[in-house]
Structures are given as C-alpha cells and as structure tokens.
Simulated assay, not measured.
Amino acid sequence: MSDRDYRAPGMLVRRVLNPLVGALAQRGITPGDTAVLAVRGRRSGRIRTVPLTPVLLDGTRHLISPRGETDWVLNLRAAGGSAELRGRGGAEPVSAVELDAAAAVPVLRAYVRGLGRAAGMLFDDVDPASTDAELAAAAPRHPVFALR
C-alpha cells in the first residue's frame, strides 16, 4: 500500500467520464479549455492520457491535481515535466514545472473559484471561501504545475 496523498476517483469517473471527456477534448468539442495531457508512463513507458482543464493565470497555463498525487502527477514528475497537451489546437509539447505551496496559492484560488460550488466534488479540504492560509496548507496535497 502506498503512503501517497491520493483520492481515487469513483468507477463512473474512471471508466466512463474520463474516457468520454478525453475523446471529446481531443476532437475539440468540450466546453472551456479542457484538454488531454499525454505523458509517458513511469513504469510502462507507454503514453498515458488524462483529461484536464488548465487554469490560465497571469498569462500562464497551470495544471492542478485536486485528487492529489495521481498517476498523471507521478508520471509527469518522472518525465521531468515533459508532456503533450492535446485539444482544439492539436498536440502541443509542454514543459511542466511544479510550483511550491506559496506559488500554488493564487492558482488554487483561481481554480477553486472557477469551480464554484462544484469544488466540493473534487476537493475535500478547500472551497471558494478558503483563506490564503488554508490554501497554503492544502497546496502540498494538490500538486500544481505551470506549463511552459
């Protein structure tokens, strides 16, 4: 058993929603900026994909993991931040840099506020009314990456 901080999605999300949203995102027919992150698997070496919604803040796109140290987070770290973002504009190579807790606070705030009341479906420790101190305390459990 792993000691990583991870909240597994339910079967419906894993088996139905993620594949459906991923397929739609790669065809450019999802709402908003939903895209598919493609990153090499740390054990298999195969390309793994997951639909994500980047957050744009101060001209930089960011990826947030509300569920903690998910496989995509571990794979992205193992790949040195090298990945591909697939969506409306086709496939774009990206380099992801993980932010420390202090730098992650404004990104988490923007993401949680953008989710509104739906934030409770993804986060169990922060919501749109969370203070900077609460977001900073939660940041280590929700990895945030800046895309370059």
Rank of each mutant, 00 (worst) to 15 (best):
G10N: 14
G59H: 04
R4F: 12
T30P: 04
T53P: 00
G120P: 01
M1F: 10
A101S: 15
L147I: 10
A35G: 01
V55P: 04
L57P: 00
G10Y: 08
S130R: 00
L24S: 01
R27N: 03
V94T: 04
M1C: 09
D5R: 15
L17Y: 12
E84R: 15
P93Q: 12
E69C: 05
V16D: 01
A129D: 14
R43D: 11
P54Q: 04
P31D: 15
A83P: 04
R86N: 05
R15E: 13
T131A: 11
R42K: 02
L52M: 15
L76D: 09
E98P: 02
N18P: 01
S130I: 05
A38N: 03
E134A: 13
A102F: 06
S2M: 02
A8L: 10
P93E: 12
E98L: 10
D127C: 12
V13G: 08
D58E: 15
E84H: 11
R141D: 10
D5A: 14
R109Q: 06
R77A: 14
E98Y: 03
V107A: 00
E69W: 07
G81L: 09
A139N: 02
R77S: 08
A8D: 11
A133I: 00
R42C: 04
V105R: 07
V13Y: 09
G59W: 05
V107L: 07
D5L: 12
D124G: 13
R42V: 07
R7L: 13
M121V: 15
N18C: 11
D127I: 05
V107C: 03
T34P: 07
W72G: 03
L147C: 08
F145S: 07
R43M: 01
A35L: 00
I64Q: 10
R141K: 15
S2P: 15
